[in-house]
C-alpha cells in the first residue's frame, strides 16, 4: 500500500494538531526534521476537527491548516469535520 504524508511547520500551533493526528491514526509515523514535522501513514490519514479541538482547547476550523501546511501526498477530501488523504492503490 502506498504511503500518504502531510508535512507541517514545527511550531506552537501545530503541536496539538500533530498530537491529534497521532491519536486518530495509530499507524502514522512522525518524523521530526529541521523546522518541520512530516507524518507518514500507510494508505490513508485523517485529521478530525473534534480531536484537534480537544487537543487545542478551542474551536478549530480545519481550513486553518492552510497556514502551517508544507506539503501533502495523496488525494484530498475535506469537509468541515475532517481532512483526509488517501491513495486508491
Amino acid at each position: 500500500m502506498s504511503t500518504v504524508f502531510i508535512a507541517l511547520q514545527a511550531n506552537e500551533e501545530t503541536r496539538p494538531i500533530i498530537d491529534a493526528i497521532v491519536r486518530d491514526n495509530p499507524a502514522a509515523v512522525v518524523n521530526r526534521e529541521p523546522a518541520m514535522v512530516k507524518i507518514d501513514a500507510p494508505g490513508r490519514l485523517t485529521i478530525r476537527r473534534q480531536t484537534v479541538e480537544e487537543e487545542l482547547g478551542r474551536p478549530y476550523d480545519l481550513q486553518e491548516l492552510q497556514v502551517n501546511l508544507i506539503t501533502i501526498s495523496g488525494h484530498v477530501d475535506e469537509d468541515e469535520d475532517s481532512f483526509s488523504l488517501h491513495w486508491n492503490s
Binding site: 511547520q9 518541520m36 492552510q66 497556514v67 501546511l69 508544507i70 506539503t71 501533502i72
Partner: peptide, 11 residues
C-alpha cells in the same frame, strides 16, 4: 515555508 503552504493546494 510560506510558499510551500500554498503548494499543497497547487499539487
Amino acid at each position: 515555508f510560506s510558499a510551500q503552504s500554498d503548494e499543497a493546494r497547487h499539487m
